[in-house]
Design a binder for these strands. Structure first.
Lengths: 219, 219
DNA sequence: CTCGTTTTGTTGTAAAAACAACAGAATTGT
DNA sequence: ACAATTCTGTTGTTTTTACAACAAAACGAG
């Protein structure tokens, strides 16, 4: 476990926790290390999850099989990322996807009850971890709601308008830079890249905006 | 404030808190009551939010104006619902929507720091509230991720496949009931109702499934 | 039961998106 | 500076979706 303390310290969950406190913290939270060979399952569809995990080595795939057997990749989890935090509510039911090691991987498990119940003893950073966890989920929540707001628009143009308006608000300027290239933006909005590119140019020709690569200016 | 204790007690945040503890709890969390006349703003776009709120009377609308001035309704908040929990992370930036009272309304504000930092004193239900809050957000998170999973599919058919497969998994049976009528399901997946209805029937004719109203059976 | 209302299915048409294929521009590595 | 690669825009075709309008079925209130 010790060799992963640096990785953990950088993760969202342990922001602001001093290195010397990490060891006692891990003990207090009853952290457990598990390793997986490439192709092994970390979680299986139908399983109950009551632990939060952090990937400290390797890479995981979140895969999904529909009723008729078609497989799709839902998410990729990289080192330092947290997983499982959305499934730990007592009434959240089982996970509906498989989580599989794409490379040889190492995962650290944390007991949720332990995290949420502050201990009387030593562990002086416990309340920081609670806040970290809370803020992380809250933040993710916000991003998801926002993304759904864009995706729920019916046309590519309105999706773009929704997204670009948000970025303008967020960066508090009608000129701003987006963190995506065209393909990534198309993927984010779940539309075809060329169709989106086409629509962007039409909007430009209609005088709604100008852009160059990832720099946009709304008019 | 007292007259709303019954409403609060039913809200997700205070599940499992006894009535006699509510008063001291509200004190401990420094709850603040605000009332709004119809049409007044509860939050304005660009504002920083560091409080969690519960609507205890009336109805709120979450509205959104895009850069070019087009308004759309993002969400409706009804009595007992929590709001603001997605914006309270220190780095979450300002809210990008307006929240407006659609009717005369009453809202109770809670300090987040107060909630997340357990007090030494009386307030023995504090850790329950932390868990409630945490589980509520976690749960919402899960639902959002799932919804995005469906919405990100490119065609109505694949959206339906994604959604129906999830329901089958969730209810652990190839026969199940959905909590939507056709229009609601179409809205949930962000597609046209008649086009979706049409697609469902095609899938039925192809022998993929059968259904009647809200009862489905996958084959 | 009956009338009015809501829900669901059906069809045709117009609009939009996906898809595919390619060309030019920009970027990267050597 | 050059070659290779990635990124972006453009176009034409095919497929899918939205939209509108309507009919049939189911439901609910009186």
């Amino acid at each position: 476990m010790k060799k992963y303390i640096q990785t953990l310290k950088k993760s969202r969950l342990f922001w602001g926790v001093d290195e010397e406190d990490m060891t006692s913290m891990l003990h207090c939270l009853q952290a457990r290390l598990e390793t997986y060979k490439k192709g092994e399952y970390v979680f299986r569809q139908g399983q109950n999850i009551d632990q939060i995990t952090i990937l400290v080595e390797g890479k995981l795939l979140v895969q999904r099989d529909d009723f008729w057997g078609n497989r799709s990749i839902v998410n990729v989890i990289s080192v330092g990322e947290m997983f499982g935090e959305a499934y730990i509510a007592p009434d959240s039911g089982t996970i509906l996807n498989d989580v599989i090691a794409e490379e040889d991987s190492a995962v650290i498990f944390f007991d949720v009850q332990r995290i949420l119940t502050t201990c009387q003893s030593a562990c002086r950073f416990h309340s920081i971890v609670i806040k970290n966890l809370f803020f992380a989920i809250s933040e993710k929540n916000r991003k998801l709601v926002q993304k759904i707001g864009h995706m729920s628009k019916r046309s590519i143009r309105t999706k773009l308008i929704s997204y670009l308006s948000d970025e303008a608000k967020r960066q508090n300027s009608s000129s701003f830079t987006i963190p995506f290239n065209r393909q990534q933006l198309a993927d984010f909005l779940s539309v075809d890249r060329s169709a989106m590119s086409n629509e962007l140019c039409k909007m430009r020709d209609e005088g709604m905006l100008t852009f160059e690569r990832d720099k946009f200016h709304l008019l």
